[in-house]
Computed example of a mutant assay.
Amino acid sequence: MLSARRILIVAYDDSQILDVACPSGALDLANRHGADPPYEIELGTVGRAPARSSAGIALGACRSLEEVAGPLDTLLVAGGGGYARAAADTRLVTQVRRLARASRRVASVCTGAYVLAAAGLLDHRRATTHWRYGAELAARHPAVAVDTAPLYIRDGNVYTAAGVTSALDLTLSLIEDDHGPTLARAVARELVSYLHRPADQAQISMFLAAPPPGDRLVRDLAVHIAAHLAEDLSPAALAARAGVSTRHLTRLFAAHLGTTPARAVRAARTEAAAHLVRSSALPLAAIARRCGFGSAQTLRQAFLDAYGVSGDTMRKMPDMPRPRAGSRRQTPGA
């Protein structure tokens, strides 16, 4: 029996502080909720030097990477604006490569994938990073199969996450693998996390894929729609909430979202329902009610329209299906 699961988080100058805080905070809460064996969390840098985060806050290193010896449960490399210098630092890359061999699993958050790639740990593997940096990673490391669609990817014992808040989703997944879903849900509740998002959820949701609406009213309604899927979201109800006529509301949605209010609501409900199908065991009828569909049959039709598969099929698929070409979710103005 393990006495503890050793977790080593690697940081460097200009690291993103959330890439360190999300995993360490979630693992600490897992310990407080009875993780057995508990997590032993360490922060490491080259030479034990403090790492200045991108927010200007210095991260005091607990360990010098050169002095750390295995075995480790998890080696996790943070991302951040200093990724290029970190990936070019032969001392850092050498230690990451060495420690990876002594680790049960290896992970990166955001641009920490560049360090893993520089160490050769992503060669011939599927990996992700923040959507803004995927093309650069693929160009620098053609042996890596870069996919910036999912929140995080597991390929063998190597995990890569999109970055920032997706570090929390990855960590909750690791906790669930180690200790089961009950503990992972307890940690998520403690973190006031609305939902443990599945790995294959898109990095960019339908309301973030395009530039944010330039109209404050439309932005506020988009947020209201996403947070109140089960309520009355008819064009008349939305117009009344905004204090405008239904005709004016339709013009605003067309101008700023490229779709109608009804189609925007349907797309939001369908996307939320798809994620619940993938991340929960709820029956379709319950998901339909929670997401504002009148019946399970209406939800099934929405899935067929958007993804070309039924909810039952979607639940059994290894990965989230892509939206159909020409579907309302992909081209909401169609």
Rank of each mutant, 00 (worst) to 15 (best):
A184Y: 05
N157P: 01
S234W: 12
A199C: 00
L221F: 04
L217F: 06
V164L: 14
R219T: 13
A167W: 09
D215N: 13
A239R: 04
T129M: 02
N157Y: 03
R126N: 05
R216W: 02
H228F: 11
I225K: 04
T128P: 02
H224R: 11
C110L: 02
L229C: 04
T165C: 07
L137R: 06
P212S: 13
S166F: 10
F207G: 04
V106P: 12
A242H: 07
H224G: 04
T165S: 14
P212Y: 14
R126M: 09
D123I: 00
A237M: 00
E231N: 14
L137G: 02
A230E: 13
Y159H: 15
A149Q: 12
L233D: 03
E136A: 15
P213Q: 10
L121I: 07
G112D: 11
A202F: 05
R132T: 14
L151H: 07
G243C: 13
V115G: 11
A100W: 08
A119W: 03
G112L: 09
P181S: 14
R126G: 01
R219D: 02
V164H: 08
D178T: 00
L116W: 08
D147G: 04
R125K: 15
A239F: 07
V109H: 01
A202Y: 03
A100E: 10
L121K: 08
V223G: 13
A117K: 00
L121F: 09
H228L: 07
D178R: 04
P211R: 06
D169N: 11
G214T: 06
V106M: 06
A102P: 03
A167S: 14
